[in-house]
Structures are given as C-alpha cells and as structure tokens.
Simulated scan of single mutants.
Amino acid sequence: MTVHGSTATRSENLRVLDRACLIVRQHITSTYPPGAALPSTKQLALALGLPQKHVLQGLLRLNGLGEIALHTGNGPIRLRIREPHPRDRALQGAVRDRIRAGHYQPGQALPTGLLGEEFGLLPHHVQRALRFLTAEGALRYEERGAYGPGHYVPATLAEGVS
C-alpha cells in the first residue's frame, strides 16, 4: 500500500465516522428530551443500524461537547441547554472560588494543564468546563492573549463569579 493509499483510506474512515457521529447526534436530539436517560451503546447501535464502535465514537464526541454526560453512575443522559457537565462541576466551582479569593488575578491566564491534572480531566474536558465559564462571563477566551491563546480572568470580574 502506498502512502497516498493509506491517506485516502484514513480520510474515508474519518468521513464514515463523521457521518455516523452526525446520525447519532440527530437521533439523540430528536428522540430524547433534555434530562432524559439514554439507552446503552448497544441499543443505540441496533436502533440506528450502525456498528457499536461508531456509535460509541459519536457518544464520546457529544460527551466532549457537553451535550450528553457519559459515566454518570446512572447511565448516559442528555444534558439540558446550559447545564454543566456533571464531571466539570468541581473544576468550575474551584475556578469561581479561586477568582473570588484573588488566587487568579484579572488578566491572568488559567493553568489549564494543572487544572486538568488536579481534577483528573483530559484536556478536552477542561476546555469543555472552561467554555461553560466563558459563556457565563466568569472567564474570557483570548486567541492572542498575553500568554498565548487561552482562558483568562476578565479585567472586570463578571457578575457570574460573585
């Protein structure tokens, strides 16, 4: 197999996976109301006629986006709009508390790697949690921040932090 052939195969596999993820998302958002429990991966795969591994990848993407919550102890659930992911709440509360206490100063970049380590979250889950805080105004995201792209404490603290 040539390098060109393997690149084409990988690209095709990604397209198939992207399509499967879209199907999973459409099914969940049209079938299950916010707050509803979701069926198992196996049950979803049977209902959608997709391989379980593709359904699982779709669920993992939706989990990463904060649209559903996997591994909640009670099975997966569809989250409500603006509902924080259950695994992010401890990090979000700690960041708010640290801003209020002056541990994080206005204009300071958050140490996302350290926060992920402290709370046992993968980098994309830290980003999911911080996106939520950014949406409520407790943080801001700067592409060209003083310390590079990242989440920063606003110069004037938002109401959501108090």
Rank of each mutant, 00 (worst) to 15 (best):
V3R: 15
H4V: 10
G5T: 11
G5L: 14
S6Q: 13
T7W: 13
T9L: 14
R10I: 03
R10T: 13
E12Q: 15
N13F: 09
V16L: 14
D18P: 00
A20Q: 07
I23Y: 00
R25G: 01
R25W: 08
Q26W: 03
I28Y: 08
T31D: 06
P34D: 13
P34A: 11
L38Y: 07
P39Y: 08
K42C: 01
L46D: 13
A47V: 06
L48D: 07
L50P: 01
L50R: 08
K53C: 07
K53I: 04
K53T: 10
H54N: 12
V55M: 04
L56V: 01
Q57S: 13
R61T: 04
I68A: 05
I68K: 05
A69T: 05
A69K: 08
L70H: 01
G73T: 10
G73Y: 07
G73K: 03
G75S: 09
I77E: 09
R80T: 14
I81E: 14
E83I: 09
E83M: 11
E83R: 04
P84Q: 10
P84F: 09
P84C: 11
H85R: 08
H85I: 08
H85A: 15
H85T: 05
D88G: 12
L91H: 04
G93N: 15
A94H: 09
V95D: 02
V95S: 11
D97M: 04
D97N: 12
D97W: 04
R98V: 00
R100F: 03
R100K: 14
G102H: 06
H103G: 11
H103Y: 14
H103N: 12
Y104Q: 03
P106D: 09
P106F: 05
Q108R: 02
Q108P: 01
L110N: 00
T112K: 08
G116Q: 07
E117V: 05
E118N: 06
E118P: 01
F119N: 05
L121T: 05
L122E: 13
P123S: 10
P123F: 03
V126H: 04
V126L: 07
L130D: 00
L133F: 11
L133S: 06
G137P: 08
L139F: 05
L139C: 09
L139E: 06
R140C: 05
E142I: 04
E143G: 02
R144G: 03
G145R: 03
G145L: 05
P149M: 09
G150M: 10
Y152Q: 04
Y152G: 10
T156K: 11
L157T: 09
E159R: 15
G160E: 12
V161D: 02
S162L: 13
S162C: 07
S162K: 11
